[in-house]
Design a protein around this nucleic acid. Sequence first.
DNA 1: ATGCACTCCTGAACGC
DNA 2: TGCGTTCAGGAGTGCA
Length: 270
Amino acid sequence: MPELPEVETTVRGLRRVLDGRRLTRVDLHRDDLRRAFPDGLVQRLVGATITGLSRRAKYGLIATDRDDTLIFHLGMSGRMRLDPEVLEKHDHVVFHTDDGHVVAFNDARRFGSLDLVPTAALGEYPALAALGPEPLGVDLTAHLKAAFKDRIAPVKALLLDQRVVAGLGNIYVCEALNCARIHPAREGGKISAARIAALADAIPRVLDDAIAAGGSTLRDFAQVDGTLGYFQKSFRVYGREGEPCPRDGHPIKRIVQSGRSSFFCSWCQR
DNA sequence: ATGCACTCCTGAACGC
DNA sequence: TGCGTTCAGGAGTGCA
């Protein structure tokens, strides 16, 4: 479930304990997640010093002084556990730092991934190269207008497409569409300029709010996990079928689009 | 190029 | 109580 805000929160939490630290040990408890781990993963990491942590879309990027970048994706159920008292089931990879901290990458459903690529080749990493723009800190209006033009796919599907906007998932797409009063099934090419502008405004607002909610509850990095932000944050429409729309009180409906639930208000979202 | 169904996986929630 | 079923979803694949 981690979307952009949860990954951002995770990266911020990791930065506090990993940035500038040397990895003294890396334990693999299996040899793959969604994909096989890269060859030489452990050897390339052990002894390396972490020089920086960042995020692109839903990917966390951990750079080392060996000019490698560790790319992690939390998938559906992935989370980073700091200094676990005991290792649990699904703690698939465990990192140890030179100052005694332990970070366990736990992922029950194993939709996550771990890759290690030369930092210089990061731009050619296929999953990163295909990504659309980051939604924070920029005005998406013109980009969305161009991306939606002549598209007959539902706006919900377009926003979930990481090539259109990077980092959105099911939850925050539902939230942003409610804010912008757009029906999730609306054809991309048939959204008015005004609604696109509202959407471009809503997307970063919804994400920033979620990051703030996650960050504010992040007293101890031990709490950092993919679900934390969701549980702390109350959504406008997501998961609230039958409850009142926060804007006008009409009951929230749920439809299934390409196998995913969409929550929306049929009164104000058109 | 575009749209969409299907697949991976486990655990929580639900129904009988 | 316990079993079985359903659902959750990111991203990649494959097909029309």
